[in-house]
Computed example of a mutant assay.
Amino acid sequence: MTIRVVVADDQELVRAGFAMILSAQPDIEVVAEAGDGFEAVGAVRAHEPDVVLLDIRMPGMDGIEAARIVCAETGCRVVMLTTFGQDDHVFEALRAGASGFLLKDVRRDDLVHAVRMVAAGDSLLAPSVTRTLIAAFTSGAAVRPPQAGRLDALTARERETLRLLAQGLTNGEIAAALVVSEHTVKTHVSNVLTKLGLRDRAQAVIAAYETGLAVPGRI
């Protein structure tokens, strides 16, 4: 199955470079390019891609607002792009529904892998972005008042799965910790996302901290 992609960045060379790398893959088709958020939203509406790469800083409508609209209106997966590893808008972008966050100096192979990974329903964060996210929780800057009631619909095993997921563990590592199969973990993760109304693992991590299930420093 071909993965349809829209690339949005206000820098033409960056946009063209990403499009060229992705188009060279046999299973990826770049269906449109965009120079700002308005064009990106229009391209997603017109072409119905599987994944859109959004520069977080664009003139007119920025990537975060574009992500918010795309995630609210479509099932397209969003990967945010930035030049900075310590971007102040990381948390806001994830709250908007972004499934991934990559630096613009990402290696060719990692870019391709990221698109395939997100298209398959997974989420990803560059290591430096993960550090920014955890630092935000640690400082309290990104935390809302505890919302533990949101977890009432989860079983005890689903809560434990969410707690481990918030530590950044893979399905295999969670399976080892709970002494269950990876298939069972996938079922637990799917149930967590469905019951909490979340798009992917990135939002699940946010939910774990917002509800107090995961606490910075207690890993």
Rank of each mutant, 00 (worst) to 15 (best):
M1Q: 12
T2I: 11
V5A: 00
D9G: 05
D9C: 06
D10L: 07
Q11M: 14
F18L: 14
F18C: 09
S23R: 13
I28R: 05
E29D: 15
V30S: 04
V31Y: 02
A32G: 04
A32Y: 06
E33I: 09
F38N: 05
F38R: 14
V41I: 13
V41L: 08
D50A: 10
D50I: 07
L53E: 00
L54H: 10
D55G: 01
R57V: 15
M58A: 12
P59C: 11
M61V: 15
G63K: 10
I64L: 04
I64F: 00
A66C: 11
A67M: 02
R68V: 09
R68S: 06
C71D: 08
C71G: 01
E73M: 03
C76H: 01
R77E: 08
R77G: 00
V79F: 07
M80S: 04
T82G: 03
T83D: 08
Q86I: 00
F91C: 06
A96C: 12
A96S: 13
G97F: 03
G97K: 01
S99A: 14
L102R: 03
L102M: 06
L103D: 00
K104C: 12
D105M: 05
V106K: 02
R107S: 14
D109T: 10
L111A: 03
V112E: 01
R116G: 12
M117T: 15
A119N: 05
D122F: 12
D122V: 01
L125H: 03
P127F: 11
S128T: 15
S128L: 14
T130I: 11
T130P: 06
R131N: 10
I134L: 15
I134E: 08
T138Q: 12
G140T: 10
A141K: 13
V143H: 09
V143F: 05
P146C: 11
P146E: 14
A148L: 07
L151K: 07
D152H: 14
A153T: 14
L154E: 09
L154F: 12
T155V: 10
A156W: 10
R159G: 09
L162M: 05
L164H: 10
L165A: 02
Q167L: 06
Q167F: 06
G168A: 08
T170V: 01
T170C: 01
N171H: 12
N171F: 00
N171C: 11
G172R: 07
G172W: 08
I174P: 02
A176K: 08
L178W: 01
V180N: 02
V180A: 13
S181L: 08
H183F: 13
V185H: 00
V185C: 01
K186D: 14
T187A: 15
H188K: 05
T194D: 15
L196E: 07
L198P: 03
L198I: 12
R201D: 08
A202M: 11
V205E: 02
I206Y: 06
T211P: 02
G212P: 04
P216F: 00
P216W: 04
G217C: 00
G217A: 11
G217F: 04
